[in-house]
């Protein structure tokens, strides 16, 4: 009888499209469609890339490489021929350095200087509901925690529901963990321990320049 009740309960959940919470319905357990991030080691750690149709997040403190990872993901999506979008809540995106990371800016929809986080959230929902984008990023890394707490509790679940089953990858870029859907991943970037994590070139002070920064990503996967 318990198994019959379980089957009945699962069928009810499926009828209401709430079956994502079931362990028997993990969508990517057999085969899942993923989007490569463009960083080989990260793709290996992710098992090929970030799952499509799911909400994932890239989190980390300042100078940990969040934006670098994001730009590489955007560039990889554009190189696959996909359109990408970036909801830039605090107007932090720098097109010049992004172009240096091989991002074709003509396929990037940049919604910038939105003003406040709630309006940015609306813009994010509009872009996700329009569909057809390969990757949609929501940059709230510099938004105060108090503003993020104003988001309704259902925000992230609704966002995950909008893209569920689609080919879109939704990425939240934040300084702390916010949300991800069951099939999504958290790419947590470790803070740089000291200035030695940056790659400096040149021997003298006048000839020195900053060449690169090290990324220390840690992947926290779904189930």
């Amino acid at each position: 009888m318990p198994s019959a009740r379980r089957v009945e309960l699962e069928s009810l959940l499926r009828a209401r499209q709430l079956d994502r919470t079931l362990t028997s319905a993990i969508p990517w357990s057999t085969s899942r469609d993923v989007a490569a991030t463009g960083i080989a080691s990260l793709d290996r750690a992710l098992g090929g890339g970030v799952a499509r149709g799911h909400l994932s997040e890239v989190v980390g403190p300042r100078s940990s490489g969040r934006t670098t990872v994001l730009c590489r993901m955007l560039a990889a999506a554009v190189n696959r021929g996909e359109a990408v979008a970036l909801i830039d809540t605090c107007d932090r995106f720098d097109p010049l350095s992004a172009e240096g990371a091989a991002l074709d800016l003509s396929k990037l929809l940049w919604v910038r200087d939105v003003g406040n986080a709630l309006r940015a959230l609306k813009a994010m929902n509009l872009v996700l509901q329009a569909g057809g984008f390969g990757l949609v990023a929501f940059d709230v890394a510099d938004v105060h925690a108090a503003a993020l707490r104003q988001f309704p509790f259902t925000t992230w679940m609704r966002m995950a529901r909008v893209i569920e089953g689609s080919q879109t990858v939704a990425i939240v870029v934040a300084s702390e963990r916010l949300a991800r859907s069951p099939g999504g991943v958290t790419i947590a970037l470790e803070p740089p321990p000291d200035a030695s994590t940056a790659q400096w070139c040149g021997v003298s002070d006048r000839a020195r320049f900053l060449r690169a920064i090290d990324l220390r990503p840690r992947v926290v996967g779904g189930r």
């Binding site: 240096g100 990324l215 840690r218």
Partner: peptide
């Protein structure tokens, strides 16, 4: 798990 993101060209 450590990778180095080298920007396009120094």
């Amino acid at each position: 798990e450590v990778c180095r993101a080298v920007a396009a060209s120094a």
